[in-house]
Design a protein around this nucleic acid. Structure first.
Length: 468
RNA sequence: GGAUGGGUGGCCGAGUGGUUUAUGGCACCGGUCUUGAAAACCGGCGUGCUCGCAAGGGUACCGGGGGUUCGAAUCCCUCCCCAUCCGCCA
């Protein structure tokens, strides 16, 4: 969310930032809304000032038993009433209009972010490990993870399709345990070595929270929602009568109406723990001493993957439900860039310990998420795909989310309050880490070696093999 | 699901229609005192918007929205949220 004042002060800079994101200039349009609103507010406030002054005099006049003066003033205030009533409504409407326009604008890239339209313009900043040195490199044709998992009889997409539909999976036996082990392993490192506080957060959140991180209102289609439907028997008939249920309209319209009613009672299934964790500081004014705050959580994430039909349809790469260990930091503006590097290093550290080759990419302007100012993606080597694939994304959001959430802090020795900076990163996406372990550690006989660091979490076994 | 009680500034908490600008305390900031600190004392101290070069002024906000009134934290309606008890329940 942008501060309209900063756009007013520097429209050219704002539009230039949008352009780097591949968007048309918006400042002119926004400033028209802003101008109209301010002109109106000024007029309204003058009328309110007159009303308040007169009302005070009325109080004094009545106290002095001067009924004639009181009556005259009352008549004067009454004449303002129409404008005051309508004017307050207009102000609300104009503010809402401006806010709605601002809420859909993505964060602007920092200067050091490379320009570009898509992932082809991302810039590699470093690399770790050698794809030719992993166990799978010894094989003629390394298999993809779903081939390995299905052959082990521990990864079942067919049953998942029957039970839940496409883009779900059953993990069984040692692979179910491997998923659990990975989550534990990552959490232990982040809490014990990197100072993150482990959190077990709500998976269902209010719209306000999803708005705070930037998932709403623009990306509603990417989310899943749950609710207990608010209507009891008879209430629907009442709604039809009062609000005009569009019964004679196409089904789509009827559905839209019902969804509108339902929206009031819904909860969002978190698409990432970033939503729950970042909103931990919403609507607060923190002491600077309390910063940075560092949270981590291992949670299921839910994404509708609308618009990604046909992409990564096989296997576990792109699922409606997956597990992820998330890192969130809340810092001062001065420390946020440094924290971004630190966070990315925490994520990379997991891959290093698992012996998985990766490269770290600085995303270009066209590939960054909505709330981000600057993002590093970490891409892990997948021998079965013969490619690097995203396994982590670490973003610094500046005050973009903080404004949406009302998350502020009081700088030491200052009376002013400022917005905090927020950061989030995956460390790591557990499902994809499992994929990477399978593909990199696969053996010719179809079994999978367990990386050393993970063995304590796997009953000290050294490999996953098909049950006899 | 039923019943009751609540939602006031960073925190705690008073305030049932005006004649003061929302008590008071804590925390915080400045000062006096002190070698320094603490204590004590004095002063300051909510957030947003808006007008103004500035100093400063205006306005809104006491969970959200609507209403009554010349005037609402206070009265009415409605919604949301929180807490407690009962019921059900992993």
């Amino acid at each position: 969310m942008f501060d309209i004042k900063s756009i007013r002060d520097n429209p050219a800079v704002f539009d230039a930032g949008l352009k780097r994101r591949g968007l048309e200039p918006l400042s002119a349009k926004l400033l028209v809304l802003d101008e109209a609103r301010r002109a109106h507010v000024t007029k309204l406030q003058e009328a309110q000032a007159r009303r308040n002054a007169a009302s005070k005099e009325i109080g004094r006049a009545k106290g002095a038993k001067d009924e004639a003066t009181a009556a005259r003033l009352m008549a004067e205030v009454a004449s303002l009433k129409d404008f005051l009533t309508s004017g307050e409504k207009t102000e609300k409407a104009e503010t809402a209009k401006l806010d709605a326009a601002l809420a859909d604008i993505p964060n602007l890239p920092r200067d050091e972010v490379p320009d570009g339209a898509d992932e082809k313009a991302n810039v590699e900043v470093r690399r770790f490990g050698d794809p030719k040195a992993v166990p799978a490199a010894a094989l003629n044709k390394p298999k993809q993870h779903f081939e390995i998992g299905e052959a082990l009889d521990m990864m079942d997409f067919e049953s998942a399709a029957k039970v839940s539909g496409a883009r779900f999976v059953f993990l069984k036996g040692q692979l179910a345990r491997l998923e659990r082990a990975l989550g534990q392993f990552m959490l232990d490192i982040h809490t014990e070595e990197f100072g993150y506080t482990e959190v077990n957060p709500p998976l269902l959140v209010r719209d306000d929270a999803a708005y705070g991180t930037g998932n709403l209102p623009k990306f509603e289609a990417d989310l899943f929602f749950v609710q207990s439907f608010p209507l009891e028997s008879g209430e629907l008939d009442q709604l039809v009568a009062e609000a005009g249920f569009p019964r004679d309209q196409p089904l789509k319209e009827q559905l839209r109406f019902v969804m509108g009613v339902a929206k009031a009672n819904r909860r969002t299934l978190i698409p990432t723990a970033e939503v729950s964790l970042t909103n931990l500081v919403r609507e607060q004014i923190l002491d600077e001493d309390a910063l940075p705050k560092r949270f981590t959580a291992c949670t299921p994430c839910f994404r509708s993957e609308a618009g990604s039909a046909g992409r990564d349809t096989r296997g576990m790469i792109r699922q409606h439900q997956f597990t992820k260990v998330e890192l969130v930091s809340v810092t001062t503006p001065e420390k946020s860039l440094e924290e971004h590097e630190r966070m990315t290093a925490c994520a990379e550290n997991i891959l290093k310990r698992l012996g998985l080759p990766f490269r770290t990419m600085l995303l270009c302007t066209g590939d960054m998420g909505f709330a981000s100012q600057k993002t590093y993606d970490i891409e892990v080597w997948l021998p079965g795909q013969d490619a690097y694939r995203e396994i982590s994304s670490c973003s610094v959001c500046g005050d973009f989310q903080a404004r949406r959430m009302g998350a502020r802090y009081r700088p030491k020795g200052s009376k002013d309050v400022k917005f905090v900076h927020t950061l989030n990163g995956s460390a790591l996406a557990v499902g994809r880490t499992l994929v990477a372990v399978l593909e990199n550690y696969q053996q010719a006989d179809g079994s999978v070696m367990i990386p050393e660091a993970l063995r304590p979490y796997m009953g000290n076994k050294d490999r996953i093999a098909k049950a006899q």
